[in-house]
């Protein structure tokens, strides 16, 4: 009897926690179908119209496109640089090794406002005009730290004897990297890239300091909030969310299929 009440308590707790996590997402999704006017706060009735007219809102799709562009570019840059740094930090013994390890933590520990303002001041001093380029630079900078930390763990778990075996089996340094090191690091690199994209895509603070006149999706919403957020914003947010869900499901299913195949053989 006591056991059942305990079980029930756990269920209630789980339900509340999940509801707490999911209500904002559900709200966003539902209100993308709201037949609202300028203000998307009270339910006015169901419509598909907002999904069909996403890009009619001035600047919205452009901001979204900028976010995707910045996200992809800074992810590629940060992942490539961060992976190389991670390999160097784990594999090679050099003078400033531990100092660099420590310094790479700093951007993660520093408040974003400080980071964003500091960077903006530097751009001003050097005389670089703010725009897409400066956003990409800023995002690459703070993503590198996260990439290094993620990939470093993977490199550390890699048996150095595998690369030595590759060299012993007539692999040139390039072949050893692309055929042995890289494939074995892919799970870590992929995780780092996803993390980078997510961080870049929803960054507002640093972007706001370094974007000049260019809008990104988060910046657009922030500015729109002053006048009332159009339901089309909910449409894009919901679409991104659905895409993420689909990606996760596909990844899980294909992994399960692979596991099944390799255990069957």
């Amino acid at each position: 009897m006591r056991r059942r009440t305990k079980g029930l308590g756990l269920w209630i707790y789980t339900f509340i926690a999940l509801a707490f996590l999911l209500i904002p997402i559900v709200y966003t999704f539902v209100f993308s179908f709201n037949d609202s006017g300028k203000l998307n706060i009270a339910w006015q009735g169901f419509t598909l119209e907002k999904w069909a007219t996403v890009c009619t809102v001035q600047g919205l799709c452009e901001a979204f496109g900028n976010s995707i562009l910045v996200g992809l570019t800074s992810t590629v840059l940060a992942t490539a640089l961060g992976t190389l740094i991670a390999i160097a930090l784990v594999r090679y013994r050099f003078k400033a090794r531990s100092a660099i390890s420590l310094l790479l933590f700093l951007p993660m520990a520093t408040p974003e406002v400080v980071l964003g303002a500091g960077l903006a001041a530097q751009f001003l001093t050097v005389g670089v005009e703010k725009g897409l380029g400066t956003i990409i630079l800023a995002h690459t900078m703070f993503c590198i730290s996260f990439v290094v930390v993620t990939v470093k763990a993977r490199v550390a778990s890699l048996d150095p004897a595998l690369e030595e075996a590759g060299r012993d089996l007539y692999g040139s340094p390039g072949q050893v990297f692309w055929r042995i090191t890289f494939p074995l690091l892919v799970p870590g690199i992929a995780a780092a890239a996803l993390l980078s994209f997510a961080l870049s895509f929803d960054d507002f603070i640093i972007t706001n300091f370094n974007s000049g006149a260019v809008d990104t999706f988060p910046k657009f919403i922030y500015i729109a909030a002053a006048r009332g957020i159009p339901a089309q914003v909910n449409v894009i947010a919901s679409a991104v969310f659905l895409l993420a869900i689909v990606l996760v499901v596909v990844a899980q299913v294909s992994r399960a299929a692979r596991a099944k195949r390799s255990s069957a053989s």
Binding site: A161, E164, A165, D168, L169, R179
Partner: peptide
């Protein structure tokens, strides 16, 4: 190492985990 007519059987075997047995053996 790749210029020497020498091959090693490593203490930990060091088989490439992401390749099949055949790919492992054909690597060199």
């Amino acid at each position: 190492p790749f210029q020497r007519p020498v091959n090693t059987v490593f203490q930990s075997y060091a088989l490439f985990p992401h390749m099949t047995i055949l790919e492992n053996v054909a690597f060199g």
